[in-house]
Design a protein around this nucleic acid. Structure first.
Lengths: 314, 314
DNA sequence: ACTGTTTATGGAACCGGTTCCATTTTTTCG
DNA sequence: CGAAAAAATGGAACCGGTTCCATAAACAGT
């Protein structure tokens, strides 16, 4: 019976049919727990993600789901709502022997600890994080992305540039805004432009905060002609602010975002695209390969390419 | 050892300590598969949800996650991307004995089939669906909600009303827009107003489609003074359209949405609130009660209350 | 102190698969 | 046609817990 189910060993066609018939007749379906116990595999992949109200996480998760759907593996979701939970959740996840592999989105964690608890658990990290990881990771080069966006503005003739982003010292330890800002500064330096501190604002990760920040920047006596917003979600807030002030995009103020979330399309936001869905798909595919062939993906880490998506806000 | 772990039976304090010490020393952690096999429980709850790019699903899922987090149960996610998948996914889920219970979001499914395959699996349905269900369900009265919204507009003096929604014949079989529209019509009838067909539009479930539809309605020779949009996401598109046409909200056109998603707050959208996060929390809590006490929640189904959230668009 | 009763503890059976090994059946070939 | 080789199949052990039962230890009462 086991042989028939898993198609592997040698069985005569005749008996194979008989078994199949019996299975069908008895309405038999294998008990996963038993299979897990004897096989030592859970056919489950854990995903640890921050509380996903941000579109970027949802899109990545979607990508993971896409791939896992087709596989024999189930996805168990561990969404972290507060930073303090990371440690405990991770511990549970590693300890309980409930997952064959773990995909971590954007959360920095102690690698030392994970290795100590369960050195053999395949872990894949998606997104740029604070800590350098020795696990396979799928990231982007946020600094380069910041430069890319900024240079794009500069090439279009903008000389006075503003920046809006979320807090750099956020409790989850996300670093994308910090790095993108670094790219922004670097590009400004290289172009010989001046960084105006008043035009640089960090605030909460909400459209409303970004809107407020942008309003302040744009209400100043001298205002920039373009703003780089480190996250698309916030860029939507900035667009709202521009609208509030009865300014026009892109003539009065140009805006470029980062991420290319779905909403960016609707809003015709020019932005730096990182393939969010794809990053999830790739992570999941790596994981499946790893689990099936007991083999790490070859380039154990990759930085996905970034590209400008030209739409209507620059 | 088992007795100590599960704290149940009688053990002398002395030996309890000894066992605990040994556990600690050997860095022991129980194997879930074995526990599942012997105990007959998987400590896993399945959630089947449509492909969740819509904020409403994410919010409901968040609520579920909130509650499960604190419990011993894990959440396995089965997100459905195409309607055809429902049957197969459901079958897998029911058949594999991998979940102790199942929470279904918004998807209509054949109850007959689920009962046939696994009559004992606790299933809870969240959201109003096409099929009447005999499983415990957490819904809202969409017709009443449509009336509520429409009457709110009428009470504010609006006599010419438009409607924007997503397709009524959508492939997933979502019925909320259909029902809300029914409420809209009912309220109009009761107020003795006239339903103007040209002011009623159904389109894709995207901001862009809604924007286009709203633009068309508002560009007509005679245009309504208020629009009821059956879903907040689309309402954002309608607001954009109003902006496109250089009209003002709420003076030229009032807008009321439905759902009260997070973005509604930022956009100051007046809307009908259904407690999305809460619906998820409640569903999960019911499920846990059901599993622990082997007992159905008492009122086996509930329609959550709806309320108008007054903000700036009416 | 001894028996009767209660409480604690070790051991065996079991959950339902997979896998390995021994046995039986089939095939191959001299 | 018979022996050796190959292929198919049934059976036992195992995965690592839980639970039930029997035995052992502690306690109580006379």
């Amino acid at each position: 019976m086991s042989r028939v189910l898993n198609g592997s060993a040698q069985v005569r066609e005749e008996t194979r049919q008989k078994v199949l018939a019996a299975i069908d007749e008895l309405n038999f379906s294998p008990n996963m727990a038993a299979r897990q116990l004897s096989g030592g595999k859970t056919f489950t992949i854990g995903v640890m993600t921050p509380f996903f109200t941000y579109p970027s996480f949802v899109e990545r998760l979607t990508g993971i789901q896409d791939v896992l759907h087709e596989s024999a593996y189930d996805l168990v979701l561990h969404s972290i709502r507060f930073p303090e939970q990371v440690g405990r959740q991770l511990h549970t996840l590693l300890t309980r022997n409930r997952v064959d592999g773990l995909i971590v989105l954007s959360l920095p964690f102690s690698e030392e600890e994970t290795r100590r608890i369960n050195p053999d658990l395949p872990i894949i990290v998606i997104d740029d994080t604070q800590a350098i990881t020795h696990y396979p990771s799928i990231t982007i080069d946020n600094v380069a992305g910041g430069e890319l966006a900024t240079n794009y503005l500069i090439e279009r003739g903008h000389r006075t540039l503003g920046f809006v982003g979320d807090r750099i010292d956020n409790p989850f330890g996300f670093v994308s805004t910090r790095r993108r800002y670094e790219g922004f500064r670097r590009a400004i330096d290289q172009a010989g432009l001046r960084l105006v501190d008043d035009w640089v604002r960090f605030g909460e990760h909400t459209q409303e905060a970004a809107r407020q920040n942008a309003r302040e920047i744009l209400s100043m006596e001298r205002r920039p002609t373009a703003i780089f917003v480190s996250i698309d979600t916030l860029a939507l807030g900035v667009l709202a602010a521009i609208d509030d002030l009865k300014l026009r995009v892109p003539d009065d103020v140009a805006v470029i975002g980062f991420d290319d979330i779905q909403a960016a399309t609707y809003m015709h936001l020019t932005t730096v695209r990182q393939h969010l869905v794809y990053s999830g798909q790739l992570g999941a595919r790596w994981m499946l390969d790893w689990l099936d062939r007991k083999d790490l993906p070859d380039p154990a880490s990759v930085a996905l390419p970034l590209e400008i998506v030209e739409r209507a806000t620059v």
